[in-house]
């Protein structure tokens, strides 16, 4: 309730601007505009009081900019000889090019499975997923995964891991090495090129995994709870760095997480899923200004309201019917 009242505030805008620290007038203006715009939209929902009003018809986006379309996908797993488990039920979702979309839900809601279907690692029992209008039939370098388990090749050094993709794409060794070294530097691991993954901490491993995936220039990043295995401090730092990297070239990101904070902090759009069977409950636009800075955002009542409201919606999951 408190968050909701705080959330109304025209007093927020100056706060954002001051804290931003951006010197360029143009940028400041842009940010201001952005905040204003989001405020008005936000205000509406607050007045509307029912959080379900945030829900948007999932296919309502302009089709021209859609990069990934998930069309009535269901996934059934055989758990034992006679028992089937409906992991995903009739999921439809469109993801626009350049959007940072989080899939948020409790463990076991099939959110990772959905990501694997987009990755082409798992084929859906029914329905189909498309990238740029083409049906997804298998993995491809246009979609780069980053896994919670890092999945680095233990027999390759940091450089060897990052170079793997470009080399596989036929890039000449010298060129691949130069690109990879630049990427390693970008993720903050300069000096660790010849280290083996076992010699790195969890956070560093995930940086390498991110660099390895970025190295073959995928159009979509598929991140499967990438920071789930990291301690809180490391997770925060990686979230910040991921945002910095993402804000530079705005690749499409599909980000699976069970952390509400993480989803709200990073995303343009949060897809809330419910459990057994896995369905999309709601799709929520996160209208918070970019570039986002953690120290400002955590104090921002609108951020807080998003977090509190989403958490409350999960708590009320018995009452609210799933949205199809």
């Amino acid at each position: 309730m408190k968050a909701r009242q705080n959330g109304r505030g025209s007093n927020d805008a100056p706060h954002v601007c001051e804290g931003d620290g951006l010197s360029g007038r143009f940028l400041a203006k842009l940010v201001l505009l952005n905040v204003r715009a989001s405020e008005t939209r936000y205000g509406m929902t607050v007045v509307a009081a029912r959080s379900s009003e945030w829900m948007r018809p999932v296919t309502s986006q302009e089709p021209a900019s859609a990069i990934i379309e998930i069309d009535r996908v269901s996934q059934v797993f055989q758990t034992s000889a006679r028992k089937d488990h409906l992991a995903l039920s009739d999921i439809s979702l469109t993801i626009e090019e350049g959007a940072f979309v989080s899939i948020l839900g409790p463990s076991g809601c099939g959110k990772s499975t959905l990501l694997y279907i987009v990755g082409g690692f798992v084929s859906p029992t029914s329905g189909m997923a498309k990238i740029k209008g083409h049906a997804i039939t298998g993995p491809g370098p246009d979609r780069g995964p980053v896994f919670q388990e890092f999945a680095l090749f233990p027999w390759k050094t940091v450089l060897g891991n990052v170079m793997y993709g470009p080399r596989q794409q036929g890039v000449r060794a010298a060129e691949a090495e130069a690109q990879s070294r630049a990427l390693i530097e970008m993720v903050g691991l300069k000096g660790f090129e010849s280290f083996y993954p076992k010699e790195l901490s969890g956070g560093m491993k995930q940086r390498v995994a991110l660099a390895r995936t970025l190295a073959y220039h995928p159009e979509v990043l598929l991140m499967d709870e990438p920071f789930g295995a990291l301690d809180a401090h490391t997770r925060t730092r990686l979230q910040n760095d991921l945002l910095t990297i993402w804000e530079r070239d705005r690749k499409t990101v599909l980000f699976v997480t069970h952390s509400v904070d993480e989803a709200v902090f990073l995303s343009d759009k949060v897809v809330m899923m419910s459990k057994s069977p896995g369905r999309i409950r709601q799709v929520i636009d996160i209208d918070l200004p970019r570039p986002r800075r953690r120290n400002e955002l955590l104090l921002d009542p609108r951020y807080q309201k998003y977090v509190v409201d989403i958490e409350r919606m999960f708590d009320e999951s018995d009452e609210a019917g799933p949205v199809s």
Partner: peptide
């Protein structure tokens, strides 16, 4: 062999038969 190692290599554009030599063999070493 960890499934996600194979997936990582496939996503990077490794053909199926090459996976055997580039991922499975070294991972099983």
């Amino acid at each position: 062999v960890e499934q996600k190692l194979i997936w990582s290599a496939m996503a990077a554009g490794t053909p199926r038969y090459e996976i055997l030599f580039k991922v499975v063999l070294p991972a099983a070493m």
